[in-house]
Amino acid sequence: MEIKRRKFQGVLNILSFNRHFYVIGLIVLATTLAGLMFFKVPDFWIWIVVATFLYGLIMPLVVSAYVYDFSGYYDFKWLKKLDLTDQKPRQIVNINAGFDETSFILKNNFPEATLKVFDFYNAKQHTEPAIVRARKVSMVYPDTLQIKSDEIPLDDQSADLIFLLSAAHEIRSHKEKVAFLKECHRICKPNGEVITVEHLRDFPNFLAFTIGVTHFFSRKAWEKAFKEAGFSSFEESKFTPFMSIFTCRP
């Protein structure tokens, strides 16, 4: 099945799933402006406040359009640079947090491989409003299984490639994240790889998302989690200044 994305689908998803932030932001801006005008603050400071709020509201959409609509993220150009398509894996696993835009594309990139898709979303533990809304419009790959984050129903050392694409950060607890990655380590073949793509809590993403950057984790936090899960290697490559690809091997 070929998936054709609409123009600006990535940024429209971000705007739709996180609309509560924009509603709150506009309400706070209107309230702040009313207060500044009531106290007759100089126009210079009013323009600074307006510019600051608009930056915080618009810049995430600009960066999201760049990353998800114009950089080739969903064309998987970054995947070709990793030379994974030449390995001819037999078993591929794709694990999401309830919003899946990649499984059909992965299957097109690896047509001869068996693809298993798992969803670790737990309504009690993963409470972000954005992911709740995303689940309502997500396409579901055939035979996708709902799982616990610490229990992947596959045999030991059975997967050649495991993909965690903009999903693992939804596991907010470090302890739960390590338990999840231990399961990934268990099912990964000795010569297999876990491919994780994530925004980081770093300066470029701070410029892009301002306080929203706290939704992501630092490189150090990811490296610590993978090492505690038992992985022997942890390599990072950049896909745009705002996205990191972690390649980890057992």
Rank of each mutant, 00 (worst) to 15 (best):
R219E: 14
G10E: 01
I58Q: 09
F118R: 00
S233H: 11
D69V: 07
E176N: 11
K124G: 08
A167I: 05
F226T: 05
I131E: 05
F53T: 02
T240G: 06
A30G: 13
R172G: 12
F242S: 02
I27Y: 03
I95Y: 04
V41T: 13
K88N: 13
E235W: 12
A123L: 12
I105E: 12
H199V: 03
Q9H: 13
V213F: 05
V11W: 01
A65V: 04
D143F: 10
F246E: 04
N18M: 13
A123N: 12
G192P: 01
N109D: 15
L207E: 06
L164R: 02
D83S: 13
I195P: 03
F70L: 15
F180R: 04
V11A: 05
I187L: 06
E193W: 07
K88F: 11
S16N: 15
M1W: 10
Y121D: 00
F104E: 11
R249I: 08
K107I: 04
K182H: 08
A130E: 14
I58V: 14
E228F: 05
S244Y: 01
A30T: 09
G192H: 01
R172V: 15
E170S: 00
S244D: 05
C188V: 07
R172Y: 12
I92W: 01
D86E: 14
F203W: 11
R135S: 04
F203V: 12
D83G: 07
M139N: 15
N191M: 06
V140D: 09
H169I: 02
D202E: 08
A123D: 11
K136S: 14
F39K: 14
I147C: 08
T247P: 00
E183N: 07
D202G: 01
I162F: 04
V62F: 10
L165P: 02
V11P: 02
N96P: 00
V67E: 08
T240F: 02
L29W: 08
V197R: 09
Y121N: 03
V140Q: 14
F246S: 10
K220M: 09
S103H: 09
F180V: 08
F38D: 10
K88V: 09
R5S: 09
A130W: 02
Y66H: 09
F216V: 06
C188R: 00
S173F: 11
N109P: 02
N108L: 13
R186T: 05
T196E: 08
Q9F: 11
D155S: 15
W222C: 02
D143W: 10
G98H: 00
T102W: 03
Y22N: 06
R201P: 05
K81M: 14
Y66P: 00
V62M: 08
V178R: 04
E198W: 07
V140Y: 06
S173D: 10
K4H: 12
M139F: 10
L181Y: 13
Y22C: 08
I48M: 08
S218D: 06
R186C: 11
K88Q: 10
F21D: 07
